[in-house]
Amino acid sequence: MPAVVKLEDIHRIYDSGEVKVHAVRGVTLELHKGEFMAVMGASGSGKSTLMNTLGCLDRPTSGRYLLDGVDIAGLDRNELADLRNEKLGFVFQGFNLLSRTTALENVELPMLYGRRRISHHDMQERAEHCLAIVGLADRADHFPSQLSGGQQQRVAIARALVNNPQVLLADEPTGNLDSKTAIEVMGVFQKLNDQGITIVMVTHELDIARYCRRNLIMRDGKVVSDVQVTDRLIADTELRRLHEAEAAAKLTA
């Protein structure tokens, strides 16, 4: 089976005049359909640069990046935008929803910029479907300010899903959430992954990484560890355990 993402000796050097920062120093990586990978590392390890490269927001200084068989080296700004639109979904740490825009309209956003024309009705239907996947069908007409952090992040996930991407990229998606909500969001990711969606997420929390199938650890721009998770946590189980613990605490109190 061909890899969805194929990185070959990727380097990224930031040249800000006097100092050259070598953020990524030779990463070679393959990601197959249905994988669920966490990228971990201390700040400055190059994980964010790697994510920006994977997300076609940034170009590598050298090396080859094939996304779904397309070499991004020859693409211009607009072609990269189209690639992001069609093949990638983004989830950010700060949710990055448009305020004063309903959940439904936020989810519709990537379709507005699609090169294929979709009727307004179909757009709405697809956005509603994606909101239903993340369990927010009843919050479609809510504004971000009326939603909790976890709900906002689920809207962001729905937005990332709406164009049926090849890869879903999440940059510290649980960074701004409390631990219980974080597990809920990981549950959403796991459910999507079980349906065959490829996910890459950046995190610096070890226990969050344990919900993924594969852990990639970076240091100084290089991959130092790339292992399959053996004792994978299942979000539903963990949530149930948490509920029981809460209930027990109340009983004893």
Partner: peptide
């Protein structure tokens, strides 16, 4: 600026 960033990230062209 952030809103513009979001729009660009999800595939908006500069022209749009």
């Amino acid at each position: 600026t952030r809103e513009i960033g979001i729009r660009l990230a999800v595939g908006a062209h500069g022209r749009e």
